[in-house]
Simulated assay, not measured.
Amino acid sequence: MVRHGAREVDMVIPIGLLKAGRTSEVRDDIAAVKRACGDALLKVIIETCLLTDDEKILACRCRRRPGPISSRPPPAFAGGGATVEDVALMRRTVGDEMGVKASGGVRTTEDARRMIAAGASRIGASASVAIVGG
């Protein structure tokens, strides 16, 4: 929907390919979506609670170009959401060249502060009024 004015696009990393060790295909998928996005910001979502720490690092390394990489809640049946530990791991992996977005489970001002201290450059939350008001 970039041609209709979208400035940001979210994509979920192909987790099956990542878990199968087919990282070149994961990179190709990300690159194809980025080409389709043009100048729009591409946010690559990693469903962290479905991955081991090594897979999270690998997923972060598949995202080579600047732009946020996001830890987000997986499908409801899998449980979880962004954790301080995952955000810190992602930040250590991507350094300062990429953003890290913490999404899911951030409900209070203190939650947001912990995520930012761990390295989040963005917060995704449905409780934004409570967070800002807190």
Rank of each mutant, 00 (worst) to 15 (best):
R61I: 04
R35P: 02
G133L: 05
F77D: 10
D111M: 03
R65C: 11
D53Y: 06
K43P: 00
E55P: 06
S70I: 13
L58P: 05
C37N: 08
E8M: 11
G38R: 08
D39M: 07
A120V: 06
A117H: 09
T52H: 13
R72Y: 00
G95K: 13
G119D: 08
K101N: 09
S121D: 10
A40D: 00
A32Q: 13
G79Q: 14
R65K: 14
R27H: 04
R114T: 02
K19H: 05
D86L: 06
A117F: 07
V87T: 13
K19W: 04
A32V: 08
A120F: 07
V106M: 02
D39Y: 03
I46W: 05
S121Y: 06
G5K: 01
M1W: 04
E47K: 09
V44N: 04
D111Q: 04
D29G: 12
A6E: 01
G16C: 08
L50W: 03
A102Q: 02
R64V: 14
K56Y: 06
T93I: 11
K43R: 10
R114W: 02
F77L: 14
M115I: 07
M90Q: 12
D54H: 13
R122W: 09
C60I: 06
G80A: 10
I15Y: 09
G119W: 07
M98E: 10
D10P: 03
D29H: 13
T93H: 13
G133M: 05
I123N: 01
T93K: 10
S70L: 15
P73Q: 11
G105S: 11
A76L: 13
D53G: 08
D111S: 04
L41W: 07
M115A: 06
P14R: 14
E25P: 01
D111A: 03
G81T: 12
T52V: 12
G81Q: 11
V132F: 01
A82P: 04
V129W: 00
L18H: 07
E97P: 01
R122E: 05
A130Q: 03
R65E: 15
I15F: 08
A76F: 11
R22A: 10
S24F: 04
L89A: 10
A40P: 04
M11F: 09
T48P: 01
R64T: 15
R64E: 15
R91C: 11
P73E: 12
R64I: 12
A40E: 01
A6G: 02
T23F: 02
E97D: 15
P73W: 01
K19R: 14
E97C: 15
M11K: 10
S103V: 02
E55H: 06
G95P: 09
A117R: 14
E85A: 15
A6H: 03
D96E: 15
V2W: 03
E97S: 15
R91L: 12
G105F: 00
L42M: 09
T48I: 07
R122L: 11
I46M: 12
G124E: 00
G21N: 07
F77W: 10
L18E: 00
D86N: 15
A36P: 09
S103Q: 07
C49R: 14
S121Q: 08
G21L: 03
P66E: 12
A117W: 03
I30H: 02
G134S: 01
I69C: 13
R114P: 00
I57A: 09
P75C: 06
G124L: 03
